[in-house]
Design a protein around this nucleic acid. Structure first.
Lengths: 348, 348
DNA sequence: GAAAGTCACGAAAACGTTTTCGTGTTAAGA
DNA sequence: TCTTAACACGAAAACGTTTTCGTGACTTTC
């Protein structure tokens, strides 16, 4: 088990100084051709690679970016990571991840852990608990210390930083518009409680689409799910709620759900009640996850281009990191990713 | 934008030496109570936190572990990461990820990038290309330099290191046994080409189960899919192949597939051909992914406990990192995670 | 043959820590 | 009063780099 070789060892071995070795390996004109070749050959032989940690300490930058997300076992988030990793790698950066698990305190701890020199900047999506508590001090403190943050998807206007968001409002509007076009007269919305910003925006899009077509919204058609419960564990309860929605609205012929699971459950309930999708009731979901594609019937969805979001976020962050003038130019961008309606079998 | 405060600044501010500050903050008995309190108060006021990079350089350990996986947008892998992150965090480690994208060269590059001081050890699952090329020099070189590796799921006996694997053989055997118990007489296998070790083992399990029940295997019941094509892009082709399998075996009444997608497609084809699942044909898949749970009918699967694999791998790695005697005790463990059959609606 | 310039290299500082080993001051013991 | 011990602190090295500056040996120039 031989340790990695260092400049010092090469220097001692070849009987020159450390500086000479360093310069030779960086091909400095200061060093004669002879010594350069000798040193480079030796270095190659022993497979010398500069120690990243030492470089980080010297340069005061790690070329690593930190991602903090609520959970990783989630198609949307892993797709975002994938995008971040793609451009990060292309531009010579590593990616380190921290999971908040939707908990405020884990988010704070994770950020503090990484902020002490481990990374150059953050890409993050807030935990539900943080959104609920509206406590953003850790973001602001991080930024005051000169560490840039790019937020995606779950953002909040109280924090001034670069952001990448999905056009939730128009995505929802487009989807509901499609249902109306397709002849739906009674369209239900299955959404989350309002403190989740994206749920709120999608709800507004739903309402706007109705209004535009002179269809008065009805409170009994809107089902707001409390997501503080882990819904994977409460699938039956959820199903019950949705079944009730169907039963108290017998004329229901369209459903817009703010995520895949809700949409799939709606289809399941519909089938159970003897309704055919898409002939009796049409369903559209949000998020281009893997479930939508492989469901039967496959689900029409509003695609949020998660990977593209990740790429954009990484570009924003790295651009900021590499701009010299990060002293006073406090201009923050918000990039809006437009959504697409991916039509599949659950709509006509 | 104030930079993070350092020991040196505190020392200058309080007119003591750097050593004194360091010792005071670590509560050394060498320093008088008075000075300790003064320094600690000052440090707390300015929210001092030691710089991780400097610590890493000094201690020659980063308390960070690297994960290299083929892709992250995959329920199994993200679940594993989730497990790794859980115990890593609990034990004071960070997690940094590299994606090989199933490519040999990206795997090599990523590992080299991280091996130069950025991390203390690897947890990884090999890319398909690496498995095909059978070129393992990068693993061996990494280990020679004193950096431990724990492999999971896709492993190979040529590399001597700690491993965490799924009991693919018995999992498959159990599944096929279940189908036989349930009365299936003609059971198809949908698997991958043999170079993917897990595919091979699951195939052997299938054969063993048949043999144990005195059912001769038939070549026409075994469909080997070439996974070098990205199957997400070749779903139709895949479906065709499976349809052919059904048509050339009209008495088919059971299907064992080595992953979710194949199993779902089998169900889809069955439905298309007018066969009821599970009454006419029963289906079992491998991997407890999200698709199985939400499919209709929901899919009976062999659960591999991905999260548990990740936890185990992390424990193995960290234990090795923290054992003092990592000099000569070249004992490598292979932990086998037993599978469970999760029965759902696709079997009787 | 002396002044000036070029060449090739080394010494040392710096990044932010921790830790070992002094060292000066004071108090206790003889 | 002198020695010794305890106490409280500082200097410096070390981790592995890069880079600035200095310097000795040679070569060129008049």
């Amino acid at each position: 088990m031989k340790r990695k070789i260092t400049l010092k060892q090469i220097a001692r071995e070849l009987d020159v100084s450390i500086s000479t070795v360093s310069k030779a390996l960086r091909n400095s004109a200061e060093i004669s051709e002879d010594t350069k070749q000798k040193i480079q050959a030796f270095a190659k032989l022993y497979n010398y690679r500069p120690n990243n940690i030492a470089l980080s300490l010297k340069n005061r930058r790690t070329n690593t970016i930190g991602i903090i997300i609520p959970e990783i076992v989630h198609h949307f988030f892993s797709k975002v990571i994938s995008g971040v990793e793609l451009v990060a790698n292309k531009r010579g950066y590593n990616v380190i991840i921290g999971l908040s698990n939707e908990s405020f305190s884990k988010e704070v701890i994770n950020m503090e852990m990484l902020a002490n020199g481990s990374i150059d900047g953050f890409i993050l999506s807030m935990s539900k608990e943080t959104l609920k508590l509206q406590d953003y001090h850790h973001f602001n403190e991080t930024m005051t210390q000169g560490m840039p943050i790019v937020m995606f998807d779950r953002v909040v206007s109280d924090v001034k930083c670069d952001k990448v968001i999905v056009d939730d409002f128009n995505g929802a509007k487009k989807a509901v518009g499609k249902l109306i076009e397709n002849g739906c007269k009674s369209i239900a919305l299955i959404t989350t409680k309002d403190y989740v910003s994206v749920g709120k925006l999608r709800t507004q899009g739903y309402l706007e689409a109705l209004e535009e077509h002179q269809m008065p919204p009805k409170a009994e058609l809107i089902l707001k799910i409390d997501e503080s419960l882990d819904y994977e564990a409460h699938l039956e309860g959820l199903e019950k709620e949705i079944e009730q929605l169907f039963q108290s609205n017998p004329k229901l012929d369209g459903v817009f759900a703010v995520n895949e699971i809700y949409a799939l459950l709606a289809m399941k309930v519909a089938r159970k009640l003897g309704l055919d999708v898409p002939n009796d009731v049409q369903v559209i979901g949000f998020t281009d996850g893997v479930l939508s594609k492989h469901a039967t019937p496959s689900l029409t969805t509003v695609s949020q281009h998660a990977q593209h979001m990740g790429e954009k976020a990484a570009e924003l962050l790295i651009d900021k990191l590499e701009s010299e003038f990060n002293s006073a130019d406090e201009v923050f961008q918000t990039v809006v990713i437009t959504t697409d309606l991916v039509e599949r079998e659950s709509t006509k």
